[in-house]
């Protein structure tokens, strides 16, 4: 009986030290179905789709705008090493590298570029090796969501600043 009592004491002590190490629940984001679940748990829709080349990605949305999550550095043994939140805005004549530079100079987290089609590409890369705390992943999604809608405000202001009777591009 005495031994059991001792063992009980040890059992009581052990979870305490373990708790100090692992206070935060960790999210494994190394595979599409895991990221889809994490997005859904954070209150976002998430649907797994396949790219033309057969790679899985996630379709989701924030503030009424679609975005995708793509997977990088994927290996059979370890899963994927990083993800990228991506969205885009359809080409306008006034989308230029100078406009993208104005955004990238002043704003954080959301890297934008004018792609070869003239569209704006929006990117946020996230390192996922080692897993993320649940609160940190929520923070990452929040940054994506806040900065995406900030970009739309920025673009609306840029559009207002365009000359009203702009000449067609290339004339």
């Amino acid at each position: 009986m005495r031994l059991n009592w001792l063992a009980g004491l040890l059992l009581m002590a052990m979870p305490l030290s373990a708790a100090a190490e692992e206070q935060e629940p960790l999210l494994d984001l190394s595979a599409p179905h895991l990221v889809a679940k994490a997005l859904q748990d954070a209150g976002y829709k998430a649907e797994i789709a396949k790219s033309k080349s057969g790679d899985p990605y996630i379709k989701s949305a924030a503030n009424g705008s679609d975005f995708t999550v793509e997977f990088y550095g994927c290996e059979l043994a370890n899963g994927c090493g990083s993800i990228q939140f991506y969205s885009w805005r359809k080409k306008e004549s006034w989308y230029t590298p100078a406009l993208a530079n104005r955004w990238n100079t002043r704003k954080r987290f959301l890297r934008i570029e004018i792609d070869e089609d003239g569209d704006i590409g929006m990117h946020l890369d996230v390192a996922t090796v080692g897993k993320l705390t649940k609160a940190n992943f929520a923070d990452v999604i929040d940054w994506w969501s806040v900065m995406s809608s900030d970009l739309d405000d920025f673009l609306a202001k840029e559009e207002e600043a365009q000359p009203k009777a702009a000449k067609p591009a290339g004339s």
């Binding site: 935060e24 390192a127 996922t128 080692g130 897993k131 993320l132």
Partner: peptide
């Protein structure tokens, strides 16, 4: 983003 904290392995990856 660091709200919630990053564990040592994940920050090492960063």
């Amino acid at each position: 983003a660091t709200i919630g904290g990053l564990n040592q392995t994940n920050f090492g990856d960063v």
